[in-house]
């Protein structure tokens, strides 16, 4: 079938492509350019070649931020395991189960700033965590949770996991409800225990959801900012203990007006994200070949 040329498809696509060009493609090109300049946003950029990248390579704060962002990826497997367990727990037809599902979803819909403030308050030295631990006799006096550098990153990761479980639980729950009941019956006949049954039927059956959650939550983990901003009161934590790549980008670019240097950080973020996406794609291809 031959068709005459038509503008119609391009007209349909035009608004979306315009927005993409202005707010994604143009900024990517600019940020590459800015990364080779000294730039404070107010005065025009001055070309400095590789200076920002050379500085970045020996910037210990940058490497700390990079390290923290990579450590943050622990959130992904933790979230997958805990969300699957929670989804299996609430995947039953028992009275009141929908109420529990809704309750587990509460942190996920409350917004990162609200939950960040909430955590800051419960872990405050006057917070409820100290109250409970002292009542139980575990602590003798209030502990400064937020002033302990070794705890900043673990607290942030815990916060992310806690806030994410409800959302990913819903993803896995939808997946579980698509697994045919006969598979569980077959497993039961084969003498599988409750736990074995889920290991042999639920986990393989949830593979599309696991891939989805792995991709989404790891990309989110690489971009963490809001939680750090709120939990450390914009400081990045004592001795930058909670600093992440995006937080460092924000500090350099918008707090200190080193937009050129921040652009180099942005390029580093892009590089890490791309490497990660490629690994994800390769893993998925590998899995598909295995099928």
């Amino acid at each position: 079938m031959t068709k005459k040329f038509s503008f119609t498809p391009y007209l349909f696509l035009a608004p979306a492509l315009l927005v993409t060009a202005v707010f994604i493609i143009y900024p990517i090109i600019s940020v590459i350019y800015y990364s080779f300049t000294d730039y404070d946003i107010m005065t025009p950029p001055v070309w400095v070649g590789l200076k920002n990248y050379i500085e970045l390579a020996t910037d210990s704060t940058f490497w700390l931020a990079m390290r923290n962002s990579l450590i943050y990826l622990i959130a992904t497997p933790t979230l997958i395991v805990l969300s699957i367990i929670t989804a299996i727990l609430v995947n039953r037809k028992l009275p009141g189960i929908t109420l529990f599902r809704a309750l587990y979803y509460v942190p996920a819909v409350s917004g990162s700033i609200a939950i960040g403030i909430t955590w800051r308050m419960i872990f405050d030295s006057n917070g409820i965590i100290n109250g409970i631990l002292m009542t139980l006799g575990i602590l003798k006096e209030p502990f400064q949770w937020l002033a302990e550098p070794a705890l900043t990153l673990p607290l942030l990761i815990m916060l992310t996991v806690w806030a994410g479980i409800g959302y990913y639980m819903m993803v896995f729950l939808a997946g579980l409800q698509n697994i045919p009941e006969e598979l569980y019956d077959a497993a039961r006949i084969d003498g599988c225990s409750e736990v074995q049954k889920h290991w042999h039927v639920s986990v393989p059956g949830l593979r599309p959801q696991i891939v989805f959650v792995a991709v989404i939550s790891s990309l989110a983990a690489l971009k963490v900012f809001d939680e750090v901003y709120v939990l450390t009161s914009r400081t990045g934590g004592i001795m930058d203990s909670g600093i992440t790549i995006v937080f460092y980008l924000w500090r350099k670019g918008f707090q200190l007006s080193h937009a050129g240097y921040a652009s180099a950080i942005a390029i580093a973020l892009l590089a890490v994200t791309l490497i990660f996406s490629l690994v994800n794609i390769r893993l998925q291809e590998h899995r598909m070949e295995a099928d």
Binding site: F23, I24, Y26, P27, I28, S30, V31, Y34, I41, L219, L222, K223, F225, V246, L249, W250, G253, F254, A259, A262, S263, A266, L269, L270, T273, L274, S277
Partner: peptide, 12 residues
């Protein structure tokens, strides 16, 4: 896959 944060300086 492009993180939105990457675009914030030029967008600003």
């Amino acid at each position: 896959v492009v993180p939105a944060q990457l675009t914030y300086i030029p967008s600003f």
